[in-house]
Design a protein around this nucleic acid. Structure first.
Lengths: 231, 231
DNA sequence: CGGGCCGGTTACAATGTGGTAACAAATCTT
DNA sequence: AAGATTTGTTACCACATTGTAACCGGCCCG
């Protein structure tokens, strides 16, 4: 996975590059808008992290340019908080945004969430599975051995996918909301709702969940017989 | 939990160390930038509290250095308020900052908040244990060999976590209250209550506690068969 | 011997959280 | 355009969690 980081503050750019590399990504950097576009064309990254105020060509324009030619996921980096800049960035087609200051962990989490969402879309023959349960991501169907496939709605499928990708681990409500709805929209109450709907489809006895475990005050986890002992 | 305090003002440094130790942390101190880096490498702390103006190597550089090699949480300590220094520190990857002058309680609260945020995220081995008892912090479950897991409430889990982190050592009531409830809220009476509730869940015979020992007039301690014999 | 302090225990109220349900708005199908 | 599906919204209930107070018994100390 290759990430293009566009940030004019060199020290911050370094920190970002370091953090992302340590998280296992390839990183390319650019420090102004024009260089960003050039780098984007030559490096063809899977995701762009984009500061909004840049020399030579501002972030908005870069975002618009990239969006007009592809649907590479874009995460906007902005110091201004809580106002229309953010909204505008998202309107331009950005997939998420992070407001400075932010912690490295937070950024990596967002990057992962966006990438997961992005490559979940295409109808590749993605089948995720544990011993008990599998999900055909191209058809949005959940299957249990010996039972007919169950049709899921897109949101339900994304939720189950996220749980499946972390089978055996507890995911916080916040992480799940992020993974399913992204930065905008999404809410603990809606997650509750969605979990309920998913359970009522895949749990043989919804009143006593077998697959989706609740961890009160924390979140949910998918039961995995092959749960990995720490390593 | 080990904390590295980097502060050149010796009297302040002493106060910090004392405060943090009383709150149940291990503390290592350094008084200039170079010593800080050295101490960081050898002590490998879970969190760094970092003054910005230091002799020999300034705080910014120390921060950048540490950040370039790990994501140990960093809290910046600064006397300058409300200007870009703080922002810059945060951009370098610090996780929080505290402006002097500050109250010890406030600092401890920030430290706890940052630590909680830091280790709430990953799927690291969130299992603490002694020979008799272990705690899965991600699920808030206590386990005794041969018995099914016991579900704990968030507060109970935090209490047990604190005890477990200092297994074999006596913790004062005050330290425990601080650890569980943070700077605000919390009360000796509530601790009594919480200890009772935790005991009734994990002690086979609550009337004769085996795990959680009471030290009258002082606090509580968790029994640890591997308590540190000197060496 | 009696009072007061301390910790354990019990009871209860206030609050929070998750599960369930019903309904409206938006979207997709046909 | 009509109907079905999906999603967002709200409300409600049951129960868990937490905070608060009171009570009891031992123990120290005068």
């Amino acid at each position: 996975m290759k990430i293009l980081v566009v940030e004019d503050d060199l020290s911050l750019s370094d920190v970002l590059a370091f953090t992302l590399r340590r998280a296992g990504f390839d990183v390319v950097t650019a420090h102004d808008g024009l260089a960003a576009l050039k780098a984007w064309q030559t490096a063809n990254p899977n995701l762009v992290i984009l500061d909004l105020n840049l020399p030579k060509l501002d972030g908005m324009s870069v975002c618009r340019q990239i969006r007009s030619q592809s649907d590479t996921p874009i995460i906007i980096l902005t110091v201004r908080s809580g106002d229309e800049d953010v909204v505008k960035g998202l309107e331009l087609g950005a997939d998420d945004y992070v407001v400075k200051p932010f912690s490295p962990k937070q950024l990596v989490a967002r990057v992962r969430a966006v990438l997961r969402r992005a490559d979940a879309t295409p109808a590749t023959s993605t089948v995720l599975a544990t011993a008990h349960l599998s999900l055909d991501r191209s058809r949005n169907e959940a299957m249990r051995p010996g039972s007919p496939p169950i049709r899921l709605t897109p949101l339900e499928a994304r939720l189950l996918e996220t749980l499946l990708l972390n089978a055996g681990h507890v995911l916080t409500a916040e992480a799940l909301v992020d993974a399913v709805w992204g930065a905008e929209g999404g809410d603990r109450a809606m997650l509750k709702q969605l979990v309920y709907r998913l359970r009522s489809k895949i749990e043989p006895d919804p009143s006593q969940p077998f697959y989706i475990e609740t961890v009160p005050g924390v979140g949910y986890a998918l039961t995995d017989p092959d749960a990995d002992f720490p390593g």
